[in-house]
């Protein structure tokens, strides 16, 4: 069986400083059925733009330039506008970072969920409202029966994000894209929302593409992780493999700078330098300027992916170098034995 979402060579360009710059550059990844894939990266790495590219909601003047996005084998990038609209919400739903501004301030929240339901199903207004109440209960909104009549400004940030989740669930999507769903919330509320997402994922068996910069969240909820740096994926691995054995120097740096993993009392190690701006990305490996293991070859051409373990792919010359040295060593040993 194929994966639910297959993304190949996805490239999204924005005009910047006189040329079209690939903000998202030839991404390859998959999200399996019932899987939670975390897309991790710093701000400016292109992770939100990746999410919007999947939904074909890249704001102008940007555009998805090339590549392929398949949902259940169906290509989304060349779907007619009308068919794509049916995919949004019913096939792939999305929740955003800012629950404060992501709801329409002049519409009652129930009305907004009802709209989402009725966009994809022929149901009456009152039936939709009933379902909205049940969705509110499902996502743990207290007093759901009354809260459907509330306006967004009458709800707290956490409740608003629950409304967003209810809205996203309303058309029973196969994939939920959650773009930094907890960043704008208080720490205690963050944990509740994450647990809710996990529970719902288990109940409904939908897949989740979680976009975040927070490795703590990744550790709590993800099955698999893809690390994004400057528009490119540098490493993908199952969660445990990534946390126990990070291979790309950037991933290693990220993990070292995580407070929970660092030795207490020590200063948190940081990755020197900043993410280069998209208009002056180098032709070689984009991490080269900040990498401690940089070699001459890194500055020339982008490194290719190599399998480094079960489901563990990394794009780094240093590893390939080490591996080939290891192979050579093995060969020499064999020769010596013979």
């Amino acid at each position: 069986m194929t994966a639910l979402l297959e993304v190949t060579e996805l490239t999204t360009r924005f005009p910047m400083a006189g040329k079209e710059v690939p903000i998202v550059d030839a991404l390859d990844f998959e999200v399996g059925r019932g899987e939670v894939l975390a897309l991790v990266g710093e701000s400016g790495s292109g992770k939100s733009m990746t999410a919007l590219s999947l939904m074909r909601l890249v704001p102008k003047p940007g555009r998805v330039a090339s590549g392929s996005v398949r949902l259940d084998g169906e290509e989304l990038l060349n779907l007619p506008v009308r068919a794509m609209r049916r995919v949004r919400g019913a096939g792939v739903a999305m929740i955003f970072q800012e629950p404060m501004t992501s709801l329409n301030p002049v519409m009652r929240v129930g009305e907004q969920v009802v709209e989402a339901i009725r966009l994809h199903e022929r149901v009456g207004r009152s039936a939709a409202l009933d379902r909205c109440r049940r969705l509110f209960e499902q996502v743990g909104i207290p007093d759901a029966a009354e809260r459907v009549h509330a306006y967004p400004h009458q709800l707290s940030g956490g409740l608003k994000q629950r409304v967003m989740i209810a809205m996203a669930l309303s058309a029973r999507p196969r994939l939920l894209i959650a773009d930094e769903p907890t960043t704008a919330l208080d720490v205690t509320v963050q944990a509740q929302i994450l647990r809710l997402l996990r529970d719902i994922q288990e109940e409904t068996d939908m897949s989740i593409l979680l976009i975040t910069h927070d490795l703590g969240i990744v550790n709590e909820i993800a099955d698999r992780v893809a690390v994004l740096y400057a528009g490119r994926i540098v490493e993908t691995a199952p969660r445990t493999a990534l946390f126990e054995n990070p291979m790309h120097p950037y991933t290693q740096g990220l993990l070292r700078s995580m407070p929970a993993l660092a030795l207490s009392g020590r200063r948190l190690p940081e990755i020197p330098g900043v993410v280069p701006s998209p208009s002056d990305w180098p032709t070689g490996c984009r991490f080269a300027s900040r990498c401690s293991k940089v070699m001459a070859v890194c500055e020339g051409v982008l490194p290719e992916f190599r399998v480094q373990g079960p489901g563990h792919d990394v794009a780094c010359y240093a590893l390939q170098e080490a591996a080939s040295r290891g192979e050579k060593k093995g060969v020499q040993q064999q020769e010596g034995a013979s």
């Binding site: 739903a93 992501s102 966009l119 809205m167």
Partner: peptide
């Protein structure tokens, strides 16, 4: 250009409906 319009698009609203129901009312 607001976030709630993006939300409306993400749930599958058409452009005409977005203009008349979301943008115009705000």
């Amino acid at each position: 250009n607001t976030d709630y319009v993006r939300t409306a698009r993400a749930k599958g609203c058409g452009e005409v409906r977005i203009m008349s129901r979301h943008v115009f009312r705000n």
